[in-house]
Amino acid sequence: MKKKDKITLIIGVAVIIICAIAVIFMLDRFAVIRIFPRPVPKQEKTIQLDNLGSADMPVGNSLVVTIFCGDDKSSWDFGNENDRALRERDFAALKIAAEWLGKQADNYNKTFSLVYPTDEKSDLYYEADFKGIICNITENPDNTECWEYIDGKIDSAALKNKYNCDNILYLLFINEYDDDTENDDNLNIDPTAECIYDKEKKYNYEFCRLPSILNGEHLSPAVIAHEIIHLYGAPDLYAFDANDINYGVTVDFIEHCRKNVPQDIMLSTYDRETGKRLPDRITQEITDITAYYIGWLDTPPECIDEYLLVHSQHEYKNGQGVNSQ
């Protein structure tokens, strides 16, 4: 081979190699393939609280105080047979939710039970009237009146001592709103939970707002359980975290949950077979994701770091080291 041909060949091979390297680099750059190591991204936010609220963690015994509430747009009249029947229905749904939570704890080798009233004769039963529209969540509600009522009217420490309970939570049951209120575009009537997330509040009382009837649908045991689980630290698995209050849940993580844990109660409270909220049972489960966020698992599932979610608020308190990855 002539010298000139050798040089041409060498140059040709060099060009091919350079082009191949460039192609590999571009494929790696756009994550088509992975050749070069990448620094592992980290979730920078941590939750470091010693006081996680009155509900704290679902272990041992938790006390449930029920408050049947009136507000500016709804009221209870227990001289009325229909309202008495609706109250009984709410108590029955609470019983189903409490028993279901205890069984879910068994799946994680945890001992947990809710102590709750079964009728209006219990000392865990209260009635109250508040200003505003309790279940309107269009804007961050002013909870001062509810907190001050609990602080001034309910001897929480004495009740916890009487019933030998470690923690306490409060369920506010609200009667049906009229159609004008439910259909008002300026309002958003929904069940919600008021809980400690990443900062302490003036009061540590954690409570749920529960409309007994909403859009013609009775309050289901699954909805009660879902809202109670929020009080123990669980995020919604269906809601993008737009306001930095839901552990950084992303659209991609929601899709991951839909594919991998469709049965998790924090993803949906609707029965998967019927597409309805059932009145007499709960068919959803607490999966490892939710179990981790309420403190039943110390180690996060791999997907938590994969999708850069904020770690459980229980890690710091339990000495595990929040977001130490």
Rank of each mutant, 00 (worst) to 15 (best):
N215Q: 14
K6A: 09
S54T: 13
I35M: 11
Q43I: 03
K199H: 14
M57A: 10
K73G: 12
N175V: 06
S312T: 11
K201F: 13
P279Q: 02
S75R: 15
L49H: 08
I24D: 06
F112Q: 11
Y170L: 03
Y108E: 08
V310A: 07
A158T: 11
D241H: 13
Q43K: 10
F207V: 01
L159A: 03
A105I: 00
G216Q: 05
E285Y: 01
F78L: 14
K103N: 03
L27V: 00
Y116E: 12
A193R: 08
R258I: 11
D179Y: 12
W76K: 10
I133Y: 08
L159D: 07
Y247C: 01
I304C: 04
K121V: 11
I133Q: 08
D90A: 09
F91A: 06
D280Y: 05
D106W: 05
I265L: 15
V40A: 06
V261M: 00
L63Q: 08
E99V: 10
P191G: 12
F253Y: 15
F30P: 00
I265R: 03
Q104E: 15
E255V: 04
I196N: 09
C135G: 04
V23R: 02
A85Y: 04
V322I: 12
D142R: 09
A92W: 00
G79P: 00
T144K: 14
D166L: 01
N323A: 15
N107T: 05
E217F: 02
C303Q: 11
P211N: 14
H218W: 07
V59I: 14
N323S: 15
K73S: 15
T144G: 04
C303G: 00
E99P: 07
I174L: 15
T274P: 01
S54I: 08
T138H: 14
A222T: 05
D244L: 10
Y232Q: 06
E306N: 12
L297R: 12
D151N: 14
T290R: 04
P221R: 06
Y203G: 11
V13E: 00
T299R: 09
E315G: 03
I168W: 09
F240I: 07
M1R: 09
N140I: 10
N323L: 01
A105F: 01
T66A: 07
L52F: 09
G79K: 14
E127Q: 15
A20W: 03
N107Q: 12
T111A: 13
L49D: 06
I35C: 03
E227R: 01
D50C: 00
I11Q: 06
I265K: 05
D123L: 06
V249C: 07
V322T: 14
Y126M: 01
E194N: 15
Y238K: 09
K259G: 00
E227Q: 14
V65A: 10
P235W: 13
I17N: 09
S62W: 05
T46N: 02
I17F: 14
E302K: 15
L52H: 08
P211S: 12
I10L: 14
T287R: 05
K121N: 15
Y307V: 11
H230M: 14
V15A: 10
I224S: 03
L308Y: 09
L169H: 02
D142V: 10
K73Y: 10
P262G: 06
